[in-house]
């Protein structure tokens, strides 16, 4: 691999196979995730797209009797090496989940939590960063006067933006979105999408979605997965207009899904 590719490839999956017990959930996945681009992963339910994205920050470590083969690299380092610090990987690769999952704490504490667990003690630094993160997540104007209220009082869309702010506060390099709009209304969905487009200037973004229009609106690259295999990967525009594989074409034209 020459140096030019390393510069733009932020994460990379190499011959990745993944098993839940005896279920072969991912089959020989090879995928590049480019720096400061949005990569969308689409595919019908059960195709392995959530499983794949959860490998990128090692969330699947929590699943008993699961097994991974192949390499997942972040900035040229294998994140599954025995001496890799999983806590550090998860800080560098942030994740926003399908269902908004703010902690049952105040809005402020939700954002400051990540900094606290990463050892930042300075109150001023924390406060500044909380404000900055909430602004980046386009939530500041709505919550600036009630930072001490419980995060559970916010609407679903606001909660999801809070979860994004919470991720941003620990200064990740990569942001993973696992169907972030699945439980949101169209207005909130639009806000999250605008946010993602804004965030790609600073972050590398991977988004799993079952919504093809959404993939079309926000992503630069799209990967289509089906039955645990990566069928096609390419520029979003190309994949949606001139798909190379018959299955991709069938899926994006709505013949199955």
């Amino acid at each position: 691999m020459d140096t030019d590719t390393i510069k733009i490839v932020r994460m990379l999956a190499e011959n990745v196979d993944f098993f839940y017990g005896s279920t072969h959930a991912l089959k020989n996945i090879n995928l590049n995730i480019f720096k400061n681009k949005v990569t969308a992963i689409i595919g019908p339910s059960g195709c392995g797209k959530s499983t794949f994205i959860r490998l990128l920050n090692r969330m699947n470590d929590l699943i008993p009797r699961s097994r991974l083969a192949g390499n997942i690299m972040l900035d040229g380092e294998n994140i599954n090496e025995p001496n890799t610090d999983v806590v550090d990987i998860r800080r560098r690769v942030g994740m926003v989940f399908q269902k908004p999952n703010p902690f049952p704490k105040s809005i402020f504490q939700n954002v400051s939590y990540g900094m606290e667990v990463n050892g930042i003690r300075d109150k001023n630094v924390i406060t500044e960063k909380v404000i900055e993160s909430l602004k980046k997540a386009a939530l500041w104007n709505e919550v600036m006067n009630r930072l001490d209220e419980s995060a559970l009082c916010l609407s679903g869309g606001q909660q999801q933006r809070l979860c994004i702010a919470r991720c941003l506060a620990v200064e990740p390099e990569v942001l993973l979105f696992d169907e972030p709009c699945a439980s949101l209304d169209p207005v909130s969905t639009k806000k999250i999408e605008e946010l993602i487009l804004g965030l790609k200037k600073e972050y590398t973004i991977v988004i799993v979605t079952h919504n093809m229009q959404q993939a079309g609106r926000v992503s630069d690259y799209t990967a289509f997965m089906y039955l645990g295999e990566l069928i096609e990967f390419g520029h979003t525009e190309k994949l949606f207009t001139v798909p190379k594989d018959k299955r991709t074409e069938d899926y994006i034209t709505g013949k199955f899904g």
Partner: peptide, 23 residues
């Protein structure tokens, strides 16, 4: 999902337990 969220932010298992799960 609380535990997952905490871990995804770079919390250790212990930090997830005493700062999120216990709350």
């Amino acid at each position: 999902r609380y535990k997952e969220a905490a871990l995804a932010l770079g919390a250790t298992h212990w930090q997830a337990m005493y700062k999120v799960i216990i709350v």
